[in-house]
């Protein structure tokens, strides 16, 4: 089975974020890493502060979009970046912790600000090798 990983996939105007892992929860965590990587190198984000987040949606795909939008909101209003995530799922309810630090433009060189996660190329599914994939396009 594939090791936990994140990647970006192309979209003409914007960019796709994808998390792949053995569990759905880790796939959500990896998708969040991919989101941070749209903005900056996640390795430059120190886990100085932890925040707790939760959300709920009618299905797993809408939940992924909610999760990413929650992070986008927290980044915007706290002026923070996040580089480590722990996700717990119970049905279609998500509870998570995210670790990060205040955005420092001179150090993080943010490439772009993410406006929102979209329903485009949205997919949360278990693949034939049993790994989970969680992906969508984000608007930048």
């Amino acid at each position: 089975m594939a090791a936990a990983r994140w990647e970006h996939f192309p979209h003409q105007a914007d960019i796709g974020v994808r998390g792949v892992s053995a569990t759905l929860e880790q796939a959500f965590e990896q998708a969040a890493m991919a989101l941070t990587a749209v903005i900056t190198d996640p390795a430059t984000v120190a886990p100085r502060e932890m925040i707790r987040l939760s959300c709920e949606a009618p299905d797993a795909e809408l939940l992924l979009v909610d999760w990413l939008n929650l992070l986008i909101y927290e980044m915007a209003t706290r002026n923070m970046l996040f580089g480590r995530f722990e996700v717990h799922l119970q049905g279609n309810r998500l509870a998570a912790q995210a670790w990060g630090e205040a955005l420092e433009p001179a150090r993080h060189h943010p490439a772009v600000e993410v406006k929102g996660a979209t329903y485009t190329a949205l997919r949360v599914a278990q693949q034939p090798d049993e790994s989970w994939v969680a992906q969508c396009v984000v608007d930048v």
Binding site: L62, V65, D66, N69, I72, T77, K115, G116, D139
Partner: peptide
């Protein structure tokens, strides 16, 4: 951010 958030919320 205001427009982005309105778009996000109403889309859902």
């Amino acid at each position: 951010g205001l427009g982005h958030q309105i778009g996000t919320e109403f889309l859902k």
